[in-house]
């Protein structure tokens, strides 16, 4: 899901008061002076859980599919973005942004925070692990054993996340190519979290359990200027396997669709571009625009043909950079739940 690079580059160009649309024109040129992803780099933990300030953009991204005792679905998102204004690597040149959301039957609740580097109000340390912005935290001995908390004026959650599997490198040993032109990022995931905790909504406090997924990614290269947005899915298959896929839409040609199959023991198998197909089949009017909330996803190599449906189609993030992010369920040759993210539906 390297395509989230978009989101962050966007965010900086569109920081809260920068309402004027600047298009994508500026995105292709700003890696000057920053470190570039290298295919020979291998992850080294716990250091790589921490920030990489010589890269321009980076994020710690958790999504969770939760259920209460009555079987009602909830989706939770916790995201911390780092963006460097210059390649200096200094704290003062970093801008941090946090997004948190809860999707439930009563609605989609979210909040957004910003912080300047060096102010002590946001940051990440690798050991013991802590990622925070304001009072929002993802903290524990290491990312496989964390407390996750965020709140807004109308929601709050406090969750405990546990995983025993190794972190899963995406792409070629963690080097995740973005397009045919070779743009790339460093990318690993933890798709095996088991979660329990509480969610507080206007209707009251709810005990929940479920599954979660962490994405860690850093890069300096924004996407191609002609790419207009992306659609990303992370799926927990009922058998215990996981799948991640995304489709980068390009205004000048066909979409670039790749992903990874992660078997239940954690072994990743990346797809070659085009192997996976993602086709919108159902649209909903969300926040005054049409957004595809139903998808047909096929992966012939694994005999996979499923319909992915948003559980709460109105899961719109009206943040500085608006996008859709919410829980999904799927049916067909395979069944399960997961998360969907869609950007560029301005």
């Amino acid at each position: 899901m390297n395509a989230k690079a978009f989101l962050f580059v966007f965010a900086v160009a569109f920081l809260p008061f920068l309402a004027s649309a600047q298009g994508f024109a500026g995105l292709g040129q700003s890696s000057d002076g920053f470190a570039l992803p290298d295919p020979d780099t291998r992850f080294s933990f716990p250091d790589d859980h921490g920030p990489h300030p010589n890269f321009r953009i980076e994020w710690w991204y958790v999504t969770a599919n939760l259920r209460d005792k009555d079987g009602v679905d909830y989706g939770v998102q916790w995201t911390l973005f780092r963006n460097a204004m210059t390649p200096s690597g200094t704290d003062a040149d970093q801008i941090w942004m946090g997004h948190a959301a809860v999707s439930g039957p009563d609605g989609h609740y979210f909040d957004e925070r910003f912080s300047r580097g060096g102010s002590g109000t946001a940051g990440v340390s690798s050991e013991p692990f802590e990622a925070f912005i304001d009072e929002w935290v993802m903290t524990g001995s290491d990312p496989n054993n964390v407390r996750l908390h965020a709140q807004g004026s109308d929601f709050s959650y406090d969750l405990s996340l546990q995983a025993s599997n190794e972190f899963v490198p995406q792409g070629a040993n963690g080097f995740s190519a973005k397009s045919h032109e070779g743009l790339a990022s460093h990318y690993y995931s933890q798709p095996f979290y088991k979660i329990s905790g509480t969610v507080i909504l206007p209707s009251g406090e709810i005990s929940v359990t479920g599954r979660g997924w962490l994405d860690r990614e850093w890069s300096s290269q924004p996407l191609s200027p002609t790419q207009t947005g992306w659609d990303w899915i992370s799926l927990h298959l009922d058998g215990g396997d996981k799948m991640m896929g995304y489709r980068l839409r390009d205004e000048t040609g066909p979409a670039y669709t790749v992903g990874t199959w992660i078997s239940r023991d954690g072994t990743p198998t990346p797809f070659v571009p085009g192997e996976l197909t993602m086709t919108p089949i159902e649209w909903a009017s969300v926040a005054d625009r049409d957004v595809p909330v139903g998808w047909r996803v096929t992966l012939p190599k694994r005999d996979l043909a499923i319909q992915v449906e948003a559980i709460y189609p109105q899961s719109w993030m009206s943040t500085a950079v608006p996008y859709w992010e919410g829980p999904v369920s799927f049916d067909g040759t395979h069944k399960g739940i997961g998360y969907l993210e869609m950007t560029g539906y301005e």
């Binding site: 102010s119 002590g120 109000t121 925070f132 304001d134 009072e135 709140q151």
Partner: peptide, 12 residues
């Protein structure tokens, strides 16, 4: 002090 500000933000 900036530290006091950070403390406030980190406490909601």
């Amino acid at each position: 002090a900036p530290d006091a500000y950070a403390t406030l933000r980190r406490n909601g």
